[in-house]
Design a protein around this nucleic acid. Structure first.
Lengths: 216, 216
DNA sequence: ATCTATTTGGCATGACCATGCTAAAAAATC
DNA sequence: GATTTTTTAGCATGGTCATGCCAAATAGAT
């Protein structure tokens, strides 16, 4: 028996075992026994840290997945278009672990459809993600004449691409190529911008703005 | 006891009960008992028509879902762009039943990820669908100068949109609006076409072709 | 050394459910 | 009417697994 266990570390370790099991055999196969086998622990040694129930294990793991996804989706670029590409490209796992996490998250989302408690947890994250996309899109089209309805429709396009990449990536044994995703999204963004004329404000105030850069 | 039961009709009835149960409580909740309750039959009266096992019930139901989806996705228009819009818009259920069928199909696809037998059945359909999109895209871009790599990337865009609409529709309690989907896909297709210059052949042979129509 | 807190571990029980199998009832055929 | 086929129906059994609960071992505090 080791010294004092760090409860948070234990929970994280168990969550990773859950994720592995989901990725390998689907969320329906997750049991305490299987988690224990993967984590190299006895069932009791898991339950103790999760209020004794499998359900708490599952809820905690879902929380871990959502946190990790949010962390990966943080845009790094300054250019609004590139920020959107970054956010969407996060779906392209650059490692096996990220691929597995995406799979697990998709399985959770499907399960949450018919589980009100899980659904509530997920809804908050989904709402935040949509807000981010809307906001980024506003920035990317700040110099274009776009009405609210069109903005909404373009956001729908981007959000649908995100869902599509996430879903197809989860169903595919091989992860998507980040290069392909970036190419598709970048082309989509450029075409999207080109579909709207520069706005009067942008033309008047664009002495050294992105408009000049874009035509060079 | 009625007169002779039509086995096919019985199987279809049972499949519909499965679909209802999946839509209501998720695929993980499907049991013979619950199917029986929904179908208004005894368990034995179901098993008899499916080789006695729940698994056969589930496989048959998945087959039904795929057939129905394929039927709905048959394009009707002559215009290549509109055909693609039609195919993609099939994801927008025009009835509650179609919405439920989409949900069930998504849940099956997720389950099939970790079930080789189901995966094999689904793979054939997915492959066929991809071929259709590639083929339709070729037609839609027949008058444009597009190399194979670009064609592949554009197909990826469209396939991703299909997956995105299907997935988000399944997760959403309200079905997507067909109007929105058509608007998004139509705009995407027009921008996609505009991204490629007319090919030399098309210019020479387009005396009364789509190019003339498009500039009017 | 003693006491308390923490960790490990798993038993016992009840719930759930698939499936092998059987049989009775009803319809159809000869 | 007798026989065969079809349909209805569900019992019995074994397997799986979550969870309430208990207890021993170990670490840390006094």
């Amino acid at each position: 028996m080791p010294k004092r266990v760090d409860p948070e570390a234990r929970r994280e370790l168990v969550a990773d075992a859950v994720i592995e099991e989901i990725a390998a055999h689907g969320i329906r196969s997750v049991t305490l026994a299987r988690i224990a086998a993967r984590a190299g622990l006895a069932i009791g040694s898991i339950r103790h840290y999760f209020g004794d129930t499998l359900r708490e294990v599952m809820r905690f793991t879902m929380g871990v997945l959502m946190q990790r996804a949010a962390r990966r989706a943080t845009p790094l670029s300054d250019d609004p278009v590139a920020r959107i590409v970054d956010v969407i490209a996060f779906v392209a796992p650059t490692s096996d672990q990220e691929h597995r996490e995406n799979i697990a998250l998709v399985e959770y989302r499907v399960m949450a459809r018919t589980d009100p408690e899980l659904a509530a947890d997920i809804a908050a994250t989904s709402f935040a993600a949509e807000e981010v996309i809307h906001s980024l899109l506003r920035e990317a089209l700040a110099d274009r004449a776009v009405d609210e309805e069109a903005l909404h429709r373009e956001a729908l396009l981007l959000l649908t691409l995100i869902e599509g990449f996430s879903f197809s990536s989860a169903l595919s044994s091989a992860s998507l190529h980040e290069k392909d995703i970036r190419a598709v999204v970048t082309a989509t963004m450029h075409r999207l911008r080109d579909a709207y004329p520069p706005s009067d404000e942008a033309v008047e105030g664009a002495a050294g703005g992105p408009e000049a850069d874009e035509q060079s």
